[in-house]
Design a protein around this nucleic acid. Structure first.
Lengths: 351, 351
DNA sequence: CGTCGGACTTGGAACGATCAAGAGGTGGCG
DNA sequence: CGCCACCTCTTGATCGTTCCAAGTCCGACG
């Protein structure tokens, strides 16, 4: 088998530098630099000659040298959680993919790091002070984000995926998904099918995200003139909790449908229905949140609210470009609306 | 609220440099550098004085400068796939977490990048030539890996997660999980419960990984003196394929248990059993592969072969350290054994 | 015809760290 | 006493790029 070199036939020696290109093209270093960074400054024929030399040698600027001179790394730091096997993981995975893709188009790469789970700040500081990254994407805001305040104080550019719940006067850029709108549309979807007793299973009251999603369910019910009392349950985000909560609700409030704050909880509901011999969709409808892998492969398919993570990534990168570019373009908050993926667990229209 | 600065009370100005520390400690730049990189070279009292100055100023070496001088970035490149919603994603997610964690302990960070999905090489070249990363972790080896040959040709350090199936004389470092052993132990597990007609649902014949896993099932069956003919099916890795394959197998070969090459296929089997009113575990046992999120939350729980991804990450990083360290320590291949996670889909012992 | 302005190019310095080699002091040994 | 080895620390050069200010060339204009 013959291996064809992709760009140049040079045997692998030390990589070519700006000076090598300059010599070959018969110009100076600076001219080559301009050819790369400000092509407009060169006469057309000179530019062409330089570009040819660059192609011949397979030249690419040395990252470290450029970073040192320009005081920028073109890297974006993203802290990921310790591997907790949960739905949140898969969601984050989708987001990371989109972020990497979008960042690349903007000329940035994504650097992953971890930190002590109990300390929201660990990991950030070292990267910042060693000038390893230009900016951060902060996602771990589920329990407030001291990161925001701290990074702000350090004048470190960052964009948060997640609203500043605690501090409504926060001035940093953020992008978030309107969970309330998602649950509202899920509830409306069930109302349109003829359900009237729709229950909510969400997270404990100290979860701002959980309460936000619950508000969407509540709003839709009130607008339809339906009661909500006794129809809501707030528990841990586990399958077992979802199962237990749905058992209690079925016994005490006899709902015909469930809207859940997560697919994990929704799976718990499906377990309960299975145990009681109730048909999912036909007897009791269920809608989850996150459109996880699980929702897609379980039988019957689980209707679920899907976050537009690709769009979130795009907005995050746009905000980053605003923070890092010249001139600085400040951006406040962006709220995106999720969509509902309908599957069989929604059931048929009720006559 | 009072914000307490974590390390120093300096107002955020330009970050301190080696020279700043040197001046404060009353020594030269080089001495500070040695204090950081080769503390043994300093006299104890001098070292203490320098360390105090470092702490006072909150000094951290500038990454770009160090990278330029040492010709190393302390970054490891990892190419991730375009977001295909599949079980493989979640597996990769677990691996990425472990890799980031382990790399950090070895002084490396993980840089994510993407490439044209149809071109296994795209993305690698630019990072390599711009000296953005020191090495790669190659995971996308499911369809052979021309990457290995190409990177080898470039003398680019890399470690593959996945065996060089095509080229058994490949000399690069790799780490892989023994899928055959996993499926063998899954099959043995079912044999021990008293099953005799155990079917296999795997991937199409051109998948080396799929054939390897199948070999484990085959070996266990042969060792038990049981027939395998008519009990194997090879299909696409989708839930629907798993459902269809299991229907055919049940009709034509009446197996009492299934071993599957993936949780996705196993989910298809569960669907079939549900549709036919067969009790999972009690009537027909099922074992999947990957221990995905799905296996954990479905009811009844799906027994599954779990890859030791944390250990894979450790081995990968060890191999990388061998490649990048001084002296170079060559490492060939490492094969790790997965474990079986038993859940209710295994069913009770058959009398 | 001389000078001026604009377009383009050039050499030198700087970014902040490490490498290589040298300087100063102390002690041991012939 | 003198030489050398050793330990400790310092000095100058360097990595490859971009910034800065000065230089060259050309045609145009007074």
């Amino acid at each position: 088998m013959v291996t064809v070199s992709r760009t140049s036939s040079r045997t692998s020696g030390p990589p070519p530098t700006l000076a090598d290109v300059a010599e070959r093209a018969g110009v100076s270093r600076q001219t080559v630099s301009n050819a790369v960074n400000n092509p407009d400054l060169l006469r057309a024929d000179t530019l062409l000659r330089v570009q040819q030399a660059i192609a011949d040698l397979g030249y690419l600027p040395n990252r470290a040298a450029r970073n040192l001179r320009t005081r920028a790394s073109h890297l974006i730091g993203l802290r990921i959680q310790a591997a907790q096997e949960g739905t949140a993981n898969a969601t984050m995975d989708r987001f990371v993919h989109s972020l990497v893709e979008t960042s690349r188009e903007a000329g940035y790469h994504v650097l992953l790091f971890t930190g002590d789970p109990t300390d929201p700040l660990s990991g950030y500081e070292d990267l910042l002070r060693s000038t390893a990254v230009d900016a951060f994407v902060v996602t771990d805001t589920y329990l407030g984000n001291p990161q925001a305040e701290w990074l702000d104080g350090r004048r470190a550019p960052f964009v948060a995926f997640g609203r500043p719940w605690e501090n409504s006067e926060a001035t940093h850029a953020w992008v978030d998904v309107d969970g309330a709108a998602g649950c509202e549309s899920a509830t409306r979807h069930l109302l349109a099918k003829g359900h009237e007793r729709i229950a909510w299973i969400g997270w404990r009251k100290d979860s701002r995200i959980g309460e936000d999603r619950r508000a969407g369910w509540h709003r839709a019910m009130k607008e339809a003139g339906l009661p909500t009392s006794g129809l809501a349950s707030r528990v841990e985000d586990t399958v077992a909790s979802g199962r237990e909560a749905s058992e209690v609700l079925l016994d005490e409030a006899a709902p015909t449908a469930f809207v859940c704050a997560s697919d994990t909880l929704a799976m718990g509901v499906l377990h309960t229905l299975g145990l009681r011999g109730l048909r999912v969709g036909d007897d009791v409808a269920v809608v989850g949140f996150d459109d996880s892998q699980v929702a897609q492969v379980v039988r019957p398919g689980l209707s679920s609210v899907r976050q537009p993570l690709e769009d979130v990534a795009i907005e995050v990168v746009t905000a980053l470009e605003g923070l890092l570019g010249r001139p600085r373009v400040a951006q406040q908050g962006v709220l995106l609306t999720p969509s509902l993926v309908v599957r069989d667990s929604s059931g048929p229209d009720r006559s």
